[in-house]
């Protein structure tokens, strides 16, 4: 793992991979959006609104996956003090927020025509909302410190505490929901999903995944470049302060 602790080696690798992931992303989005918005069948109950699913469901997957990435990166950061793990965790957080927000917004837009309301305190909606709050707290903690090292440590601890807590929150919200709302809301379809809808969904899921990887690499590179600029600026100031 420490092979990639060297930022220069990571940057070389990232520069090599990134065009490919970007190309894969564009290809998947192209095919996926065509399949999802044009070629896939309409739902016999929901008509065209079912197409929101192809945007909504992958966003929900990625919202959780991104938190998992942050948690793993934080663990690596705490245990091995791997310098790139902090960069990765920090770079992933805003992407996760974006996925979570997309999930909530499209879910709300989907809920209006199908459930007749923008928002219900449904178990899944509620736990995604709490996830959004945790993301925001995590990012706020990152930006609260002037000292980057300190911010990285604190954020990593918080990410792990959140990772321990997320299943508990998920469970408690499910429990609370069954307590308060005996299935009064019409839920989508049956447990099975038609293959004609599964394929576009899978392609869209891949597109989201490649989007995540591409943007993560971009953000990590930008972060490393910013750190180098800062260090260079500091050196320049130090050089000026030395009496001639």
């Amino acid at each position: 793992m420490h092979r990639f602790a060297n930022p220069a080696r990571f940057l070389r690798l990232a520069r090599l991979i990134q065009p490919w992931t970007a190309a894969a992303m564009f290809a998947c989005f192209g095919v996926g959006l065509y399949l999802a918005l044009v070629a896939s069948p309409i739902d016999y109950l929901q008509r065209d609104t079912v197409r929101i699913m192809y945007i909504h469901v992958p966003a929900a997957w990625m919202a959780m996956q991104t938190y998992a990435v942050i948690a793993v990166a934080s663990l690596v950061s705490i245990v091995w003090r791997h310098p790139l793990a902090d960069v990765a965790a920090r770079a992933a957080a805003p992407i996760g927020v974006a996925f979570t927000a997309i999930c909530l917004i499209t879910g709300s837009l989907w809920g209006k025509p199908t459930w007749g309301t923008w928002w219900v305190w449904d178990a899944r909606l509620t736990s995604v909302l709490v996830l959004l709050f945790i993301y925001m707290g995590y990012m706020a903690l990152w930006s609260a410190f002037d000292d980057r090292q300190r911010a990285a440590r604190a954020a990593a601890v918080l990410a792990l505490v959140g990772a321990v807590n997320l299943p508990i929150i998920k469970f408690s919200v499910d429990w609370w929901n069954t307590l308060h709302q005996p299935a009064s809301i019409l839920r989508r379809g049956g447990p099975t999903i038609d293959p004609s809808m599964l394929k576009p969904l899978a392609v869209m899921g891949l597109a989201y995944l490649f989007f995540f990887i591409t943007v993560l690499l971009m953000r990590m590179r930008a972060d490393l470049a910013a750190q180098r600029l800062e260090a260079a600026a500091e050196r320049r100031v130090m050089a000026q302060e030395v009496p001639a």
């Binding site: 903690l141 601890v157 508990i168």
Partner: peptide
């Protein structure tokens, strides 16, 4: 986690409240 921050109080609320959801529910 927020020791040493000038405006730690508001950040503490932001960090604690989501994590306190299960306790509140139960």
């Amino acid at each position: 986690l927020t020791v040493g921050l000038r405006r730690g109080g508001i950040l503490i609320s932001l960090l604690v409240l989501p994590l306190a959801v299960p306790t509140l529910i139960f």
